[in-house]
Structure formats: C-alpha cells, structure tokens
Design a protein around this nucleic acid. Sequence first.
DNA 1: TTAATAGTGTCTCTTAGACACTATTAT
DNA 2: ATAATAGTGTCTAAGAGACACTATTAA
Lengths: 245, 245
Amino acid sequence: MDTNLTGGAGTYDVSAFDRPSVAVDVAAITARGDRLHILLVRRGVWPFEGRWALPGGFVKMDEDLDTAAHRELCEETGVAGASYLEQLYTFGAPNRDPRTRVISVAYYALLPGPDSALRREGRAMVACEPEAGTDAAEARWWPVDSLPPLAFDHNAIVATALSRLRAKLGYTSVAYALLPEEFTLTELQRVYEVILAQELDKRNFRKKMLAAGILDTVPRQKREGAHRPAQLYRFTKREAVFLDD
Amino acid sequence: MDTNLTGGAGTYDVSAFDRPSVAVDVAAITARGDRLHILLVRRGVWPFEGRWALPGGFVKMDEDLDTAAHRELCEETGVAGASYLEQLYTFGAPNRDPRTRVISVAYYALLPGPDSALRREGRAMVACEPEAGTDAAEARWWPVDSLPPLAFDHNAIVATALSRLRAKLGYTSVAYALLPEEFTLTELQRVYEVILAQELDKRNFRKKMLAAGILDTVPRQKREGAHRPAQLYRFTKREAVFLDD
DNA sequence: TTAATAGTGTCTCTTAGACACTATTAT
DNA sequence: ATAATAGTGTCTAAGAGACACTATTAA
C-alpha cells in the first residue's frame, strides 16, 4: 500500500487509508400543545429496521455539512422550512453503527409550529419533494417526554439537543424560530414554558422580554375567542441575537 | 457499483460511496506570563509546507474521537498532560483542505503552565514518546494575540476555541485546568484576567470565588519574595463544574 | 525602613422574583 | 352577566461592581 502522505506538492494518495463514513443527523424540534416535539422517521432497512430514528444520512463528497443537514431533513421528512439550524456535536464512538465506522455530525433544527400550534393541533410539515430511494418509511412528530427507544445513539443526540436549546433560550433570542412572524406575548411565554418545562410569572416575563429590546410592536391585534384581544409583536431580528447588548 | 444499502440484515457494502477523510485538530491552550498561548507545529509537508498549524491528523478506523485528539496532540508535540479536552466544533467546508475532502473535528485542550508560568517563563511540555513518521517538523507555543497566518482554516478554529473558553470561564470552574493543583488567589485571578483580557477588582474577585464554594483552603502558604506569604487553595473537584449549585 | 504583595468591608445600584387586580371582548 | 384571556406595578432580596487601606514578609 502506497501511503504517499509525505510527497511533494500536489501528491497525496487519497485511497491510502481506510476512512470512516460521515453522516449528519438532525433533531428537528417544534412546540405544539404544551409539549416539545421531535421529528422522527421509522427505519425501513437494517440496521434497526422498524425502529424510530432521527432523519439523517451520509454527507456527499462536495457538500457542506450544513447543506447536508438541510437536505437530509427535507428528503426524509418533507420538512423544508427550518428557521434555525445549528451544529450540535459530533458523535464518533467506534461502534455506534453496526454497519461500519460512521461518524455523525449532529444538528438541531427549530421550526415554528402549525398556525396556533400553541393552542390546537394541526399539520406542521411544509411541502418538499422527497427524492426517490430514501430509507425513511414514515415520518412523525413525537412528544419529547415520551419517545420510543431510538436507533443508534439517537436518544443521546436528542438529549444533547434539548439541553442546548434550553441553555440558548436563556441568553439568546432563539425562541423566534419556534414562533410565527407575529405572535402575542402569551404565545411567546408559552414557548418558554414548554422548553423550560416550568411555569413562568406573567408580569415578570413580560417585563423582561420588553426590556430586552428584541421585540417590535406591530400595529395589530389578535382577536380570538370571547375575551380581550392581544397585542401582536415580532422579533426585531429573525436570528438568534445575544441578550444584554 | 453495487450500492447495497437496502439489503437485509447484516448486508452493507462499505465501499459503495466515496467518503471524506476525518481528522482531528487540537487547539492546546495555556497561560504564561500575561498572555494566553497556543501550541502550534510547523508543517513539514505539502500542503502549507512551512506554515504553522494546529497539531492534528487523521482519525484511525477504530479510535474514539477524543482518543484521536489526545493521540495527535501527544504525537506531534510531545504534550501528554492535557488536563482538559473538549470537542469544539466540526469544520467541514468542502475545500478547506486542498488534498481531498477532509472533515475536521476540532478540540481544545487546556494545560497548566510550567511552574509559576504566571510570573516567569519556563518549559511547558511534558514528556511523551513521539511516534516515528510524524509530519510535524517543530512545535512551539505562540501568544494568541500575535499568531502567524495558519494553515487550512486553523485561524478560525483558534478563534472558536478562545471564545468558547471565555464563555465557559463565566459559568464553570474550567480554570482549574490552567493551574497547578495548589495555587494562590492572585494566581487564579491572573488566569481570569489573561483569558478575559481585562483587569479584575481584587476584592470582588476573591469574594466571588470563595462564595462559589469550589475552592478548598490548603493548610499551607506560598512564600516567595520580600512580601507577605499567600494562602494556598485547590479546587474541590478537578473538573469543570457549573457554578451556582 | 522600604518595597512588594496579601488580605479585608461597605455602600450603591441593578436585577430577579413574589405577588393580585382591572380591562376588554363574545356570547 | 359571565367566562375567558390581556394587561399592568410595587416591594424585597440578592448579586455586581466601585472603591482604599492595613498586614506581613525579606532585604
């Protein structure tokens, strides 16, 4: 075997070593009802055939990692409108995949729920043409607090994603990615409560959010049901900015 | 080409796809004098021959990522005593390496300086048998605020490492990894000042550290120079615990 | 005695959190 | 009128940060 790593300029034997495969896996998260949900696909092939897993797959040779994450999410689940996507951690234990050495770069994605998901149920997936030959047999949103046992080390990936999301909620405005463009303060509070899994005080919450200077008032109200209509807001920037600036 | 991905249990054609190579790169950080330093190696081979780079190399087929990071650090620089090692981010732009597609899992490592590095200079490297065939021609500590242009995207990796370290300093006890087992409060403060690149108030700093409950007083003093001796402390746990617990 | 560093307390301001009532709407 | 949700202010406690002097040692 010619391991020509030390040769002169331009020489490098690409096939000299066995190489691990590189995959991306995506934990797509949304808030609906009073729980966070994760998008899972049921595997149609060995290994873990029939088990639920995160959408994901192998990175193409000329493809950026972020691009691969978007693509796999879209191909396997039809979800195209991720409003936030962030690299999470790279999982590379030698035996995490029974097929061969697979190193997985895990991502998490945030999606706004279906309209008014914070009150009632609905269909969340945005249209996206699935490619032929995908391994996913079925895709479904699962509430995070009652997940089935997942394929590979995907339970660990989900746990990492949730703890990262909880942390980021504290010092950035990521919450924007789980909400529609315009929303009421009650809806915003609901997202925080769902992620943190605890009730928050209404007055303190509103004080803090308005003081943070990340919200714009929109000259419109949301009227729904037999009660006082609610003021609508939007995030000044639809990106995750740091608080305290 | 037989792309047997969908076959029955146990069948999977490992050679079906072109695969990227996977490397680890390590930003090893220490504090000496009044600056942070990073350990760089000068490349002896194409590409970027002669340029300085982070120690790193390809992940072996059956090797954990963390293990690979430790190994590369040790092989290329002789540094074996990293007291903290954490995965940082995975860099995978398709053209970050001119040889072929290389996806790099970046780590950062923290090392205590040589004895009293916070006052005077010294030799920091701990013994470790370098293996034959390493690509590194030379290894040196560089002050982070005057780095040369590095190979690949290594300047970006260093920047990421520093900002992560600064952030973690605020809510964990990682600082332990940059200090010897026993140290004075002044030395501890020095580490904080060097990382944050700003002076801190002595009284407030000591109040906060002692209140955090992560330090034990050791029944010993450090006497050095013509002045009052200083009380020695050690971290209750030599690991990065969260503050506020 | 001097030079050098160790060690110590108070006050102020900001922030987080507890806490309960009025306003507006549809029916 | 009633039911349902929107919207609002005060007080207290804890933490962050500004600030200056005394203590101990070697030479």
